[in-house]
């Protein structure tokens, strides 16, 4: 079942075509990698998908509902979760409070002046923390967490909204090889359990070719290849513009 469908997406900034007619889909439970050289349009593509910038032409649909013209907040409510290349969490809160805040937002309770936030949604928050494997750190402030654990906090926050689509921007940047595999296996497992579609960008080809079900290659705003990892890896054009001659 196709969760995200992108058709003929185009976007230009001051004469530069950042995206020209990009089309692809992501199915429930599927992990799709979006790769390409710097400046190929990956960031622009993500920005359009999550509502940070407007497309010039084309269509973006989540479960058949158009996302174009919606704000990031509306898109989040429709069920799109995100993690960032450089982790973004609330440093003055504990791990649990970070997730509690996400849950409170989902329940539209963040305008409450009365209840005690620290006592809200504790069970749900802990269940999410257990799923991503950092429940034992629930009481620690985010500011002192190890980097890999912050990535997990982000994942838990993204999952708090039970997303249909998970957008991950370079999810393994800054992690050790062993840790990278672990995080990707976790994300893949969660996605399959919940039937969440996952789209991620990545520079580590090992991660891409090990964990992605499908790979999309962007170059100069165009999709130059897409398909199963081994097929994309062997593609002559992809080797020329991105992977290079060596063993990647």
């Amino acid at each position: 079942m196709t969760v995200l469908s992108v058709r003929a997406l185009a976007k230009s900034y001051g004469g530069v075509h950042a995206l020209r007619g990009v089309s692809f889909g992501v199915a429930a439970g599927e992990l799709v990698a979006l790769i390409g050289p710097n400046g190929a349009g990956k960031t622009t593509c993500f920005d359009v998908l999550n509502g940070q910038s407007a497309a010039d032409a084309g269509a973006v649909e989540l479960d058949g509902r158009s996302l174009l013209g919606l704000t990031p907040r509306q898109i989040w409510r429709l069920g799109v979760g995100r993690t960032f290349q450089i982790t973004a969490t609330f440093g003055s809160m504990t791990v649990r409070e970070n997730v509690q805040t996400a849950l409170l937002s989902r329940q539209r309770r963040l305008w409450s002046l009365i209840s005690l936030a620290a006592h809200a949604c504790v069970d749900d928050a802990d269940a999410l923390l257990a799923r991503v494997g950092i429940l034992e750190q629930a009481h620690r402030p985010c500011a002192v967490l190890a980097y890999g654990d912050l990535k997990r906090v982000e994942l838990a926050m993204a999952l708090a909204n039970q997303p249909r689509l998970l957008l991950m921007d370079e999810p393994t940047a800054g992690m050790a090889p062993g840790e990278r595999g672990e995080l990707m296996r976790l994300a893949a497992g969660l996605a399959r359990e919940d039937g969440t579609a996952v789209l991620f960008t990545e520079h580590d080809m090992e991660v891409v070719f090990t964990h992605a079900d499908r790979v999309l290659v962007l170059a100069e705003g165009e999709l130059i290849a897409q398909g199963r990892p081994d097929v994309v890896r062997a593609d002559a054009r992809v080797r020329e513009v991105y992977l290079g001659g060596g063993d990647a």
């Binding site: 990031p72 907040r73 960032f84 973004a88 969490t89 609330f90 440093g91 003055s92 993204a158 708090a160």
Partner: peptide
């Protein structure tokens, strides 16, 4: 205050 980016991404 801590992270406007993340706050926006969780619907705040």
């Amino acid at each position: 205050r801590d992270s406007p980016l993340r706050a926006d991404a969780i619907g705040i």
